[in-house]
């Protein structure tokens, strides 16, 4: 009987000792945060932020991609599919082109009238065969000639910051699909990328991109959307 009561006493006492630790927690700040409601968690004091170098969603800057297929090769789960097209010898997508960088930041693509190597900064420049799209969309333009406006425009020397020659293209990417539903986020592909165009987003957008449909997780390099920078503002908003 004596032992029984002592046992109860000891049981209650040790629980109370533990309770002291627990009750102390009442007066300490919360460690947890209510994730879907406190969505903007990077600003919270006690909460982690997404560190630099985090391995989030894969993102390929297609303009820099040389289609070397190293990422496709090293991927342990084969979530990257790349197809490139090499034109037969002698064929090319277009003749040599010029990009005129204007001082207000715009780029105009066309063919400079005369020898582009002899242009001096003060000269006014006449562009023929101007296309409405900018960036590296020449591939698209060739595939869909509707982008070519065949307009001619003259710029004065004050407007132009520089003129760049673009060589004819004999190889271009047809497909660069990343299946993020397969991806294991190991980062091997970003490590081997020679041009560092394939990266993993270390921002909130690289972590939160859940979709309702699994097929939405296959990120395609869509030639229409990716290259159609005629409507740059819309593309930025979507990104």
């Amino acid at each position: 009987m004596d032992k029984y009561i002592r046992n109860i006493y000891r049981g209650v006492y040790t629980v109370l000792v533990g309770m002291r630790v627990t009750i102390r927690q009442f007066f300490e700040p919360n460690v947890t945060h209510q994730y879907p409601y406190e969505h903007d968690f990077e600003k919270k004091r006690n909460v982690r932020e997404i560190p630099k170098g985090y391995r989030g969603q894969l993102y390929n800057r297609i303009e820099d991609c040389i289609g070397c297929k190293k990422c496709e090769l090293i991927c342990p789960v084969d979530c990257i599919t790349i197809t490139g097209t090499k034109l037969p010898k002698g064929e090319q997508l277009w003749d040599s082109m010029n990009v005129v960088h204007l001082k207000d930041g715009r780029e105009v693509i066309g063919i400079v009238d005369g020898d582009d190597k002899k242009i001096k900064s003060a000269d006014s420049i006449t562009l023929t065969n101007i296309t409405s799209r900018q960036g590296s969309q020449e591939v698209i333009d060739r595939l869909e000639p509707s982008g070519v406006e065949n307009r001619t425009q003259t710029f004065s020397g004050d407007e132009v910051s520089r003129v760049v020659t673009r060589n004819p293209v004999v190889f271009y990417l047809d497909q660069f699909d990343i299946d993020m539903s397969l991806c294991m986020y190991c980062g091997l592909c970003t490590e081997v990328c020679p041009t560092e165009c394939l990266t993993m987003k270390d921002t909130l957008a690289g972590v939160e991109y859940s979709k309702f449909d699994r097929s939405d997780l296959i990120f395609k390099f869509d030639k229409q959307e990716m290259y159609n920078k005629g409507n740059t503002e819309e593309a930025d908003a979507a990104d």
Partner: peptide
Amino acid sequence: YSIFEKTTGARLTTSYTRIGGVLRDLY
């Protein structure tokens, strides 16, 4: 885990080591 995250880039699936080295130096 936040130390792992900063060092390796992932909380759970760290893949930190490589044959003959590590993914990257400590931050």
